[in-house]
Amino acid sequence: MSSVPAATADAPAAPRSHVRVELGARGYDIVIGPGLIDAAGEEIARRLPGVRAAIVTDTTVAGLHYERLSIALRAAGIDHVQIVVPPGETTKSFAQLTDVVDQIIGARLERGDVVIALGGGVIGDLAGFASAIVRRGMGFVQMPTTLLAQVDSSVGGKTGINSPRGKNLIGAFHQPALVLSDTALLDTLSPREFAAGYAEIAKMALIDRPDFFAWLDANREAIFTGGPERVESVRQSCIAKAAVVAADEREEGSRALLNLGHTFGHALEAAVGYDAKRLVHGEGVAIGTVLAHRFSAKLGLCLPADAERCEAHFAAVGLPTRISEIPGAPLDVATLMAGIGQDKKVRRGSLTFILTRGIGQAFIASDVAPAGVEAFLTEELTR
């Protein structure tokens, strides 16, 4: 096995690690390892004594994991209620938010109590936003059950819902009090879901960690089959994201680098109507990250070989890398440009992209000419 890139954390990678998100009085731990769902009660009670909880989850995750979490909370003396919503990206809506908020208030939970998000990124975003607005801000615990959520959406405090005009356009920054990432739960994921989560790991490495990307190149097969490499990949991703969040919590500067691949990816998701049968978020990120590298190469910012290496890495784990690989009706440039124009990273009408000068050399590019993006996408749609 290749050597793991050096990093610091509070504990060894196995069997359980602690990564700290340093935000002063609002800092929190990310606990990573197998079996954490059974220890959730003691982990929460130790940090948040006396709380009651609302567990927000979806029908799929509830059937797999709710009972174990409920038993763990009861053993720690944590009274709780369950709030179940449908699975899928369309759940990030005003209608579902209203229902979740109403149930939290109906359970008479107080500002000092907590909302526990048990599920993937959709649940984390929805439950986190609900906790941000009920009683002007309740406590919040992330318990991500997907790889994508464990390495990305559960860390950093971004919460929200989608608008028909774009993804994640309605929301708030609201940091969790604790993140519990049980890596054993990843065994319940389908190969497609796991691959989609892996896209965010690779994206994190491609931002500014070329050594980590080389390690992923050497160990991606072991990450997919399980074992210490899988846990280590989650840990390294959390260390990287925690550092970015600590430096720029509200995305006023360098945190925007985490959006590598997302401007293209979000436009693709919106273009298919957030239809998970056609495209899930991680697949959009994979295509978007490849597009960002190819666009950078077209602009002469990086070598074509860097874009080819990026594309080969995603393709090797079974992720789509081209727009033409999205099933269903072909997409068109006008629809994609409309989605890009609604992206949160638009500033006063100018397009902002995360581009790259090579593997692990991403940077924020402001004032990108829309005509250049449109010409590039026109070419890409024929590939």
Rank of each mutant, 00 (worst) to 15 (best):
S2K: 15
V4H: 06
P5L: 01
P5A: 09
T8Y: 14
A9D: 02
P12D: 11
P12W: 12
R16N: 13
S17Y: 04
V19R: 05
E22A: 15
R26H: 15
G27V: 12
Y28L: 06
I30N: 02
P34K: 12
G35Q: 06
L36C: 07
L36M: 07
I37E: 08
I37D: 09
D38M: 11
A39R: 14
A40E: 06
E42S: 14
E42A: 12
P49N: 11
A53W: 06
T60C: 09
G63L: 09
Y66C: 02
E67H: 13
S70H: 14
L73T: 01
R74F: 13
I78G: 02
H80N: 12
I83T: 11
V84L: 12
T90A: 15
T90L: 15
F94L: 15
F94P: 11
T98V: 11
V100F: 06
V100P: 04
D102H: 14
I105C: 13
G106Q: 10
G112D: 12
V115P: 01
A117E: 04
G119N: 10
I123E: 03
L126P: 03
A127N: 01
F129C: 02
A130G: 10
A130H: 04
S131L: 11
A132W: 08
V134D: 10
P144L: 02
S153W: 02
S154P: 03
S154E: 04
F173M: 07
H174G: 07
L186G: 03
D187K: 13
P191Q: 13
Y198I: 05
A199I: 02
E200R: 02
I201W: 02
K203T: 05
W215G: 00
W215A: 03
N219Y: 04
F224I: 07
T225K: 12
E229V: 11
R230V: 03
R230F: 07
E232L: 12
E232G: 10
R235A: 09
I239A: 06
A240F: 07
V244S: 00
V245Q: 02
G253F: 10
R255G: 09
F264P: 01
A267S: 13
A271N: 00
G282L: 02
T289F: 03
L291C: 03
A297C: 06
A297R: 07
K298D: 01
R309H: 11
F314A: 05
L319N: 05
R322D: 04
E325M: 10
P327D: 11
P327G: 09
I340A: 00
G341I: 00
G341M: 11
K344E: 09
V346P: 00
L355V: 06
R357Y: 08
Q361T: 07
A362E: 08
S366R: 13
A371G: 15
V373I: 15
A375S: 15
A375W: 04
R383A: 15
